[in-house]
Amino acid sequence: MNNSGIVLLVRSEKIRYLFWGILTTVFYFLSRICLDFIFHIPIISATLSEIVTILFAFFVNKKYVFTKSKKNSLTYQLVTFFTGRIIVALIDIFVTYVTIEKYFSFSISLLRLDEFAYNSFPFNIPFLRDIIGSPYALNNIIWIVVIQISAIIINYLISKYWSFK
Rank of each mutant, 00 (worst) to 15 (best):
I51G: 02
R32M: 08
A57D: 01
A46H: 04
F66M: 11
L35V: 01
A89M: 07
R85C: 10
I87N: 08
G21D: 01
D36F: 01
T75C: 11
E101V: 12
F59D: 04
L128T: 08
G5K: 05
E50F: 12
W20V: 02
I91Q: 02
R129A: 11
T25H: 03
D92M: 08
R112G: 07
L48E: 08
T53Q: 12
T47A: 13
I22A: 04
V52T: 14
F27V: 07
G5T: 08
S120F: 05
K63E: 15
G84K: 00
Y64M: 06
N61I: 11
L90S: 14
Y97S: 13
I44M: 07
F37V: 05
D92Q: 10
N139F: 00
N119F: 04
Y136T: 01
I154C: 14
S120C: 06
S69E: 04
F19C: 03
E115G: 00
G133H: 06
I142K: 09
T96Q: 12
F39K: 00
P42A: 03
I86V: 11
I147K: 07
T75F: 13
T96R: 00
V95D: 12
S163N: 09
F123Q: 04
Y17S: 02
I132Q: 00
K63H: 14
V26Q: 09
N155M: 03
S105V: 11
Y161G: 15
I158S: 12
T75S: 14
R11K: 12
I6M: 10
D130P: 00
R11E: 15
F66W: 13
Y136A: 06
I6H: 12
I33G: 10
T24N: 13
K68D: 06
I125T: 07
K70D: 15
V60K: 02
I132T: 03
K165H: 08
G133A: 11
T99C: 14
Y161C: 12
Y76L: 09
V79G: 07
L55A: 13
T25G: 12
L23Y: 07
A57I: 01
R112Y: 10
K70F: 15
R112W: 06
S150Q: 12
N3W: 08
I93A: 06
D114N: 15
L113P: 05
V65L: 11
I141H: 01
N3K: 13
Y64C: 04
